[in-house]
């Protein structure tokens, strides 16, 4: 963490979160990203138990419960730090949110990462939506046979989509390995930039397709019950 001045006693902050001189809690740097918050390199495979341990340790350092008897400035800093820490933990803990966040971070350096609408999926989605519309219009009493058949078809479609979702997550996992490999071999952010951007782009594509498929599967589940 960058060295800075204590907001309270103006001495140089030597401790990690507390001023070495006056022991006041210091606000987290505005430039701190969620990976750095947990002292993690920007890798996608992480040790979740280690992450939880660090999270608990930082919670003990920042949580407002431990600043109840302190002055207003310290209370405010503790509240801000704690809110940031909780958001950081939620983001890094979840594998999908983690990669989405990483792409946002890395996209800051390279601008051409954009999510393309999945052209091949488009038609399929339209067709499914039409079927669901028909299904909703059918009466459970009058059109029971037709309704049951359509229901079965939609349920099959959902299972197929869920299968695809699993495949995508597997593909994403492989990309995690690829990304981590590149990061470890090329510690400097500017090294192997093209290759890294390539991986980011393909992860973005998988993610965006996955979102469409997840939403579709959920809608199918809601419709057919």
């Amino acid at each position: 963490m960058a060295r800075s001045m204590c907001w309270h006693c103006q001495s140089e902050v030597t401790g990690e979160y507390l001023c070495g001189q006056c022991v006041k809690v210091q606000p987290l740097s505005k430039d701190l990203d969620y990976f750095a918050c947990f002292k993690l390199p920007r890798l996608l495979n992480i040790n979740t138990q280690e992450l939880e341990r660090t999270y608990y340790e930082l919670s003990r350092a920042f949580h407002p419960d431990f600043y109840s008897t302190k002055d207003e400035s310290e209370k405010t800093i503790s509240l801000g730090n704690s809110a940031f820490l909780n958001t950081a933990y939620r983001t890094i803990k979840d594998p999908v949110q983690r990669v989405e966040y990483l792409i946002r971070l890395e996209a800051g350096a390279v601008k051409d990462i954009r999510s393309n609408p999945p052209a091949d999926l488009f038609e399929e989605i339209l067709e499914l939506q039409e079927d669901m519309e028909t299904f909703r219009g059918l009466s459970p009493e009058k059109d029971s046979t037709e309704r049951a058949e359509l229901r079965e078809k939609l349920q099959r479609e959902r299972e197929r989509l869920e299968g695809r979702q699993e495949e995508m997550e597997k593909a994403l996992g492989a990309k995690y390995q690829e990304w981590d490999g590149l990061q470890i071999a090329n510690a400097d952010p500017s090294e192997a930039r093209d290759q890294k951007n390539g991986v980011l782009r393909s992860m973005q594509e998988i993610l965006s397709n996955r979102t469409y498929i997840c939403n579709m599967a959920n809608e199918l589940l809601e419709t057919t019950g």
Binding site: Y56, S59, R60, H63, D65, F66, S68, T69, N86
Partner: peptide
Amino acid sequence: VQADILGGHNKEILLL
């Protein structure tokens, strides 16, 4: 118990 924590008498327990 929570009052005790806020009073600064219990540093062991933290509720999230």
